[in-house]
Simulated scan of single mutants.
Amino acid sequence: MAFNDDHSSPTVVLIHGLWVTPRSWEHWVAHYASQGFQVLAPAWPGAEWEVEDLRMDPSPMAGIGIEEVVNHYEAIVRNLERPPILIGHSFGGAIVQMLLDRGLGIAGVVVHSAAVKGVLPLPLSTLRSTWSVLCHPGNREKAVGLSLEQFRYAFANTLTAEES
């Protein structure tokens, strides 16, 4: 179904996951917009920079927890004229679930959602992809990026080295 005017088209809010930025949604923004949806892909607090800048210095994201991120998206959703469709990937999927739990959004779609608190066990691949960050207690208050090898394992493992 394609929507033809701004009055009938719901807004889609795309919520990215950890270690990526809204740029991860760029093709999805174009796809949904071409179908007549209004599309928002806002950044997490502290992740408003370009990927290249955050790779060089991830410190703008330091100290920002999940509650701050969820509250940030809640404010965005509450400022919309009508409840949106929420779509999230990975940690963005967990955020979508938390927003729906708060009564926000008309529908939610989660793509390979991160587990929310209390959901165990984690797959070994999830632990392996985050271990380099989580195993160091000194990282608790820092923003820590992934190496190219870690990113390829966690996010781009079906792509060639060049594509990732």
Rank of each mutant, 00 (worst) to 15 (best):
Q35H: 10
L134R: 08
A94T: 15
S164G: 14
G138M: 10
A161M: 06
H136D: 14
P45G: 11
G103T: 06
I15F: 01
A115P: 03
S9I: 02
A156Y: 07
L124A: 09
K142W: 02
S90E: 10
S125W: 05
G118T: 01
H72T: 05
D5K: 13
T130P: 02
A143M: 07
T158L: 13
L120P: 00
E163T: 09
V111R: 01
H7S: 08
H89Y: 05
Q35C: 02
T130W: 15
A33E: 03
S164K: 00
S59M: 10
L146D: 12
V109T: 05
R140N: 03
I85F: 08
G105E: 06
A94F: 06
G103L: 09
L54Q: 03
L120Q: 06
G93Q: 07
G46C: 05
N71C: 06
V116H: 09
E68P: 11
F3S: 01
G36K: 05
L159H: 09
S125A: 15
M1K: 11
V96E: 09
A115S: 07
D6N: 07
G92R: 06
P10R: 10
W25P: 01
F37R: 13
D101Q: 10
A156L: 03
R128Q: 09
Q97D: 11
L18A: 10
S113C: 11
Q150P: 04
S125P: 01
R128L: 11
V70E: 06
G92H: 04
T11C: 04
L14G: 05
V13F: 04
Q97Y: 01
L54D: 00
I87C: 08
P42T: 09
S125T: 12
R78P: 06
G93L: 05
A43M: 06
R128F: 14
T158Y: 02
V133M: 03
N79D: 14
L124I: 15
V96D: 15
L54I: 14
E52A: 12
V39K: 02
Y153K: 05
I106V: 14
A94R: 08
V110S: 10
F37I: 07
I66F: 01
G36S: 01
Q150G: 04
E141K: 07
A143L: 08
L54M: 15
A154D: 02
V119G: 00
T126S: 12
R55N: 10
A156G: 15
A94N: 13
A115Q: 11
M98D: 15
V70Y: 04
D53K: 10
E26R: 06
D6A: 14
S164P: 00
Q150C: 00
A41V: 07
I106R: 11
L146N: 09
G118C: 14
P121W: 13
P123V: 12
H136S: 07
Y73H: 13
R128H: 09
V109D: 00
V109P: 03
E163H: 08
P60V: 11
Q97P: 13
L134Y: 06
I76R: 08
E141S: 11
F3Y: 13
W28E: 15
A143Q: 12
V13N: 03
F3C: 08
R78K: 08
W28R: 11
E81W: 01
E74Y: 13
Q38N: 07
V69H: 04
L14F: 04
S129P: 02
A2I: 07
S9H: 05
P42K: 10
W131M: 10
P137A: 04
S34M: 11
L120N: 02
E68T: 15
W28M: 06
H27G: 05
